[in-house]
Computed example of a mutant assay.
Amino acid sequence: MMPELGKYAEAVLSSYAVSIVLLVALVAMSVMRARRVRAELDEVEKRIRRNG
């Protein structure tokens, strides 16, 4: 069910591919940062509990 793109098919499809790759990269970076921040917050909470 792909529309006929004619002579612009390569440009359109490559633009879609680049966009998808960038979106996946942004999601992956966000997840990695969230995990790192959560680990840092857990460490701070442990220190606070130990020191009172």
Rank of each mutant, 00 (worst) to 15 (best):
R35Y: 08
V21A: 15
M1L: 10
M1D: 09
L23I: 10
V44M: 13
V27Q: 03
M29A: 14
L41E: 14
I48M: 09
R47D: 03
V24F: 08
V18K: 15
L5V: 02
V21E: 15
S30R: 07
V12N: 01
M2H: 07
A28S: 11
Y8A: 13
E4H: 04
M32L: 13
L23C: 14
Y16K: 10
I48N: 06
S30K: 06
S14H: 06
M29P: 00
V27H: 02
K46N: 06
R50D: 10
A39L: 03
A17G: 06
D42H: 03
L5S: 02
V21C: 04
R49L: 08
L5F: 03
R33P: 00
M2T: 11
E40M: 07
D42W: 01
A9W: 02
N51S: 10
Y16N: 13
V31F: 07
M29H: 02
R47Q: 13
M32V: 12
S14L: 12
S15P: 01
E10L: 07
E10S: 10
A9V: 02
R35A: 07
L13W: 04
I48S: 02
A39T: 05
E40D: 09
V37I: 14
G6C: 02
A11S: 11
V18M: 12
A39Q: 10
I20A: 15
S30H: 05
S19T: 12
K7I: 09
V21N: 13
V37F: 02
E4V: 03
E40N: 08
R47V: 02
R36F: 04
R36C: 02
S30M: 09
I48Q: 07
M1A: 11
V37K: 10
L23H: 10
V31I: 15
Y8H: 14
A11Y: 11
V44Q: 12
K46A: 14
R49S: 09
R35G: 09
A25S: 11
V44S: 03
I20K: 14
E10V: 09
Y8I: 04
M2A: 15
A28C: 09
S19K: 13
V27A: 13
R35L: 13
E45R: 14
R35P: 00
K46H: 04
E40P: 00
S19A: 13
D42A: 10
E43Y: 03
M29Y: 05
S15T: 15
G52A: 01
V21Q: 15
D42E: 12
E4W: 06
R36Y: 08
L13N: 11
S19H: 13
V27C: 11
L5Q: 00
V12Q: 01
Y8W: 10
A39Y: 01
E43L: 07
N51Q: 10
R36K: 15
R50V: 11
S15A: 15
A34Y: 11
A17F: 04
Y8C: 06
V21Y: 06
L13M: 12
Y16L: 14
V27K: 03
Y16E: 12
V24L: 14
M32T: 06
R49G: 00
E4L: 06
A25G: 05
S15F: 08
A25V: 14
L5A: 02
L5D: 01
M2G: 09
R38N: 10
M32C: 04
L41R: 14
Y16C: 14
L13D: 02
V31K: 04
E10G: 03
V37L: 11
R50F: 08
S15V: 01
E45H: 04
M29K: 04
M2Y: 07
R47W: 03
G6S: 02
V37S: 04
R49N: 05
K7F: 04
